[in-house]
Design a protein around this nucleic acid. Structure first.
Length: 1013
RNA sequence: GGGUGAUUAGCUCAGUGGUAGAGCGCUUCGUUCACAUCGAAGAUGUCGGGGGUUCAAAUCCCUCAUCACCCACCA
């Protein structure tokens, strides 16, 4: 039964994938024939995620490397798995709940987590199925999950790793080594998810905003002489002021100001430093007073030079406040609204006032004070801003300007009827950089909260050194700089999240506030007990051990208990409710998936892993953290090479995003064009370090390529090439025919090219070399050459050609398999009985040095040149494609003669010419062709247009002359001969000679044409 | 403010010192036994501008311009 005309990808792909899995092709070590290992860890997609274009690209590249190494006989593992993705997954479940008007907080943590686990089990197969459709050859039996083994897990992960155990062990060890600490710090707070996030999860975006200018009156109506000077020191303004002018983009934070700071060198304010000023908002009778202090932070040349300091809501101010012992008043509740807790404003403000006048305070005691005025409590932060501005302006404490002030921009309130000099409040229009949560998209609030941090500075050095000294290679090179820059300026990493879904922090607190870090609750109790034993408080230790109640501190006096039972407090430990940042666990991905901390065989074999393929967007999030964490835990690099790939963009170069609606779904493309076409497209565009713009026309082009390959094989099949004895007996030494010898040499060359390209991670070079070879050499020329050979009466030639063609096509399938696994596997199975699947077939090792036959090479090049020249002339002269035309040799070297004779049938067939005649001179009205060692002409009198031929020849002569001019110029330069390498000089010389000969032939032909006219 | 990359055919992009390339698109032609998801032929470039290094520059250096991205605490 003849093969179909095209490859039916839709039907074949699932069947082939199943066959691979059934045959165990993807299992760790499948087909291994050598001891070297090759291991890639998949960047774990979110468990509830969907495969997007970036995944498709990323996993295609991984699969290419994995399949390539597997065929080469490496002991290969591609480790798959998914990430529990804290916020993202919790978000999915909460969104589900919202549909039935429920919220997470309506249920217990346990009940909610049950739902998340359920969701996880439901969606787990989704991403796996999508990867399978791409052809990803992962070892699914080892599938891992970053929360495998965590409490509440209902379906064990196939790989059986206790990832949770690995994470907890790491946390405890970090804690014990002092790499982790807890503290009340200013962190990025996401008011939507109500959790802290790390710096990396904040996106700074420029938005249109305003800058307000307000007057902070000096306490007690004090005044000072305010003097402003220009660069030369000339006084430009001198006035008596009873206020200090402050600019802010966030007026609502004024409520929490703890000071006003000026630069120590700023003479304008020198006289009032140390004095108090009044926050111009809040109930008139309880206006808070704050000190004017100095700090290096304010820039005297910006704004008024004076900065309000809100330590609890701004990172810069936090620094100033910390240095200056300024209280930090937290204004907001966790959802970003103004605080509504505590005592009435009057009471709270009195406490703050006492502090401002020197009363003692602690971070905690200040945090307990709610100094939000009663009328603003509970308001959304943006509504509060409006109210604050309104109140201050109404009171006349806004700095004023006139309506024509250009700083006001388009947003100023300009009374229509009145003139340009109407006084208006100074509210500048200004683009301000605002922090947004990368997932929630709401404005991030710097918030003073208790959090856990990794003191990254303590574990960063090995990660820097490893890349510096080449232990781990980062490609392309340019990313190293970014990597170093980040690591060398690394900030503490906020790892606690106020979520429910994740690895709960293994720390327990007792009622006295003492904390104990241990892998399990039982061990925490034990630690607590030991701690109190050591402190000599064996009573409390005993209480803890037995989980009973303790009395008031100090109530236990030797023999008897002396306290009222109603003062009993539980001596229970309670666990820190926070969970760990997802990246803390995925940072352990290489170790955890291999079974660490168990001493598993997989760990011994595959760690450190070989290559990590990932996008640049997670170099900091993930790559850098993996480097730090593996070094910190096992003192070894997680991988030898990191290959950082570019971004997949849409046709117009825009980032694909849901909001733009320009997202190409890789699975739609797989449906339409087949996985192989999608993979080949991505591969051919994977030039290092550049974004790729994906267009469907390109994919269609590569789909056509699979069809082309398919049909070349179909041709072979129809000619009985495969499955014959002849095919089985391909032996290079027996080859006689130059076309066969030539294609064998070309095959060896392309194999070397592909290996070199893949070794250097030049995926596009590999793809393009194969494309050019299969289409441009095998299909365009070799298949055509083979047709007359198959028709030959000489059975030796026929069987030699069959053998060669089956060999060549098999090589094509093998070499293409890593990039296009499906169509190649299908052809492999269709064309002949095979001992094993292509996926496990040994990779060819053909050497061009042994397999290229220079004589055959020269001969076939000549033949191709002759056919090209004749076809070109025919085309331009308008000869009908079907017409056979005569050809004469005016000049023919021995070599050229031999080339013609050996390949006469195929030249005549492909160029549609008659037998080669001879002539001393070109007949009138003929077309001349200049070839190496030959001048041929096509006598087309009557058929050709003399002028057209003149044009044709003049044009090629023009091109030649341009080339010649350059070459001659070079040769004439005496320095060229002395400075350039000899082989370059030689090459140039040869080329010059060849071009000169060709030019001479064309000039002669032009001369003959001229005679004609 | 700092950093990185880009600028090559109509479009999308390869090409890190030695004769400017590919795919798509475009024009003309083609129903012969692998393939119309095809074949044959053709057109199109002062390689962003300007300097420099070199026998030789798309390629190395300097500079300018434009675009993109990343990082950053200017109220």
């Amino acid at each position: 039964m003849p093969m179909e005309k095209t490859f039916d990808a839709t039907a074949a792909e699932p069947r082939l994938y199943d066959a691979w899995v059934k045959a165990g092709c993807f299992s760790a070590g499948a087909g291994a024939r050598r001891s070297e290992t090759f291991c890639i860890m998949i960047p774990p997609p979110n468990v509830t995620g969907n495969l997007h274009m970036g995944h498709a690209f990323n996993n295609t590249l991984q699969d290419i490397l994995v399949r390539w190494h597997r065929m080469r006989g490496f002991d290969t593992l591609w480790q798959p798995g998914t990430d529990h993705a804290g916020i993202a997954t919790q978000m999915v479940v909460e969104r589900e709940l919202a549909k039935s008007n429920r919220r997470r907080t309506d249920m217990s943590r346990e009940d909610f987590l049950d739902l998340v686990w359920e969701q996880k089990n439901k969606s787990r197969g989704n991403i796996r199925g999508q990867l399978e459709r791409l052809g990803a050859s992962c070892d699914w039996d080892r599938e891992a999950f970053t929360m495998a083994g965590a409490p509440g897990e209902t379906e064990p992960t196939p790989g059986g790793q206790d990832f949770h155990g690995a994470v907890i062990k790491t946390f405890v060890e970090f804690y014990e080594k002092g790499y982790i600490y807890r503290g009340k710090r200013l962190v990025n707070w996401d008011p939507h998810f109500e959790t802290a996030i790390s710096d990396l999860e904040v996106e700074n975006i420029d938005v249109d905003g305003h800058m307000w200018h307000f007057k902070y009156p000096l306490a007690g109506g004090a005044t000072y002489e305010y003097v402003e000077r220009d660069e030369d020191g000339t006084v430009t303004l001198r006035e008596t002021r009873d206020y200090i002018s402050i600019a802010t983009t966030r007026p609502e934070t004024m409520l929490g100001d703890g000071a006003v700071a000026v630069h120590p060198s700023d003479e304008r304010y020198a006289s009032i430093v140390g004095k108090l000023c009044e926050i111009p908002v809040g109930p008139k009778e309880h206006r808070r007073l704050i000190p004017i202090i100095t700090d290096d932070y304010p820039d005297p040349n910006f704004g008024s030079g004076a900065v309000k300091i809100t330590g609890a809501h701004d990172f810069n101010d936090y620094g100033v406040a910390s240095r200056g012992g300024i209280p930090m008043y937290r204004l907001m509740a966790m959802n970003g609204s103004l605080r509504d807790d505590g005592e009435p404003y009057a009471t709270e403000a009195a406490k703050a006032d006492a502090i401002a006048r020197g009363a003692d305070f602690t971070v905690q005691s200040v945090d307990a004070i709610n100094i939000v005025p009663d009328d603003l409590r509970g308001l959304d932060r943006f509504d509060a801003r409006k109210r604050v501005v309104e109140q201050i302006t109404r009171e006349g404490l806004a700095v004023m300007t006139v309506a024509s002030d250009p700083r006001l921009g388009k947003t100023a309130v300009k009374p229509e009827a009145e003139g340009a000099d109407t006084p208006v409040p100074l509210v500048e229009s200004k683009t301000i950089t605002q922090p947004f949560g990368d997932r929630s998209k709401v404005v991030i609030e710097p918030m003073l909260t208790d959090q856990w941090f990794v003191d990254t500075a303590k574990i960063v050095q090995p990660a820097i050194d490893a890349v510096r000294n080449g232990e781990t290679e980062i490609l392309p090179e340019q990313h190293k700089k970014v990597y170093f820059n980040w690591l060398e300026n690394i900030e503490p990493w906020t790892i606690s999240r106020q979520l429910w879904w994740g690895h709960q922090i293994p720390v327990w607190y007792d009622e006295r506030g003492q904390m104990f870090c241990a892998p399990t609750e039982a061990e925490a109790y034990q630690k607590a007990q030991e701690y109190y034993e050591k402190k000599g408080d064996s009573f409390f230790a005993a209480c803890l051990l037995m989980g009973i109640f303790e009395g008031p501190v100090g109530a236990y006096e030797g023999e008897h208990l002396d306290f009222d039972p109603k003062d009993l407090k539980p001596a229970k430990l309670s666990r820190d409710p926070d969970v760990l940042d997802t990246w803390f666990s995925s940072g352990l991905w290489p170790l955890g998936t291999l079974g660490w901390p168990e001493d598993t065989e997989a760990l011994n074999r595959y760690f450190p892993t070989s290559v990590l393929i990932t996008g640049f967007d997670i170099i900091f999030f993930w790559v850098a953290r993996m480097m730090m964490m593996q070094y910190a835990m096992v003192g070894e690099r997680p991988f030898d090479t990191v290959y950082v790939h570019a971004l997949v963009r849409d046709e117009k170069g825009k980032k694909m995003s849901k909001s733009l609606g320009n997202v190409l779904d890789p699975l739609d493309l797989v449906d339409e064009f087949g996985a192989d076409a999608v993979r080949f497209t991505l591969t051919s565009m994977a030039a290092m370090g550049r974004d790729l713009k994906l267009s469907t026309s390109r994919i269609a082009g590569y789909r056509n390529f699979t069809t082309k390959l398919w049909n070349a094989c179909r041709f072979a099949e129809m000619n009985g090439v495969f499955g014959t004895e002849a095919a089985a007996e391909f032996r290079l030494d027996d080859l006689q025919n130059p076309a066969n010898k030539w294609i064998v040499g070309e095959t060896a060359r392309v194999r070397e090219e592909v290996d070199a390209a893949l070794s250097a991670f030049r995926f596009n070079d590999a793809a393009n070399a194969l494309y050019a070879f299969v289409w441009g050499k095998v299909c365009d020329w070799y298949v055509e050459f083979s047709k007359p050979l198959f028709a030959s009466d000489d059975s030796a030639i026929v069987s030699e050609t069959k053998a060669t063609m089956s060999w060549v096509l098999d090589r094509c399938l093998m070499l293409l398999h890593p990039i296009m696994p499906f169509v190649t596997e299908e052809l492999w199975g269709t064309l002949a009985e095979r001992g094993q699947m292509l996926a496990l077939t040994p990779w060819p090792e053909d050497q061009a040095a042994e397999m290229v036959d220079p004589d055959a090479d020269a001969e076939i090049s000549w033949v191709i040149a002759a056919i090209d020249a004749i076809r070109s002339a025919r085309g331009e002269m308008g000869v009908k494609p079907g017409d056979e035309i005569p050809v004469l040799a005016i000049e023919l070297s021995d070599d050229a003669q031999r080339h013609w004779t050996t390949n006469e049938t195929l030249i005549r067939r492909m160029a549609r010419v008659g037998a080669l005649g001879a002539a001393d001179a070109a007949p009138k009205g003929s077309v001349t062709l200049a070839l190496p060692g030959a001048t041929l002409c096509l006598p087309l009198q009557g058929l050709i247009d003399v002028d057209a031929e003149k044009d044709r020849l003049s044009k090629s002569l023009g091109k030649l002359e341009k080339d010649l001019k350059g070459l001659q110029g070079r040769m004439k330069n005496p320095k060229f001969a002395t400075s350039a390498p000899p082989e370059v000089v030689e090459e140039t010389q040869a080329m010059l000679a060849q071009k000169e000969a060709e030019a001479a032939k064309i000039t002669a032909a032009l001369g003959r044409l001229a005679e004609l006219a």
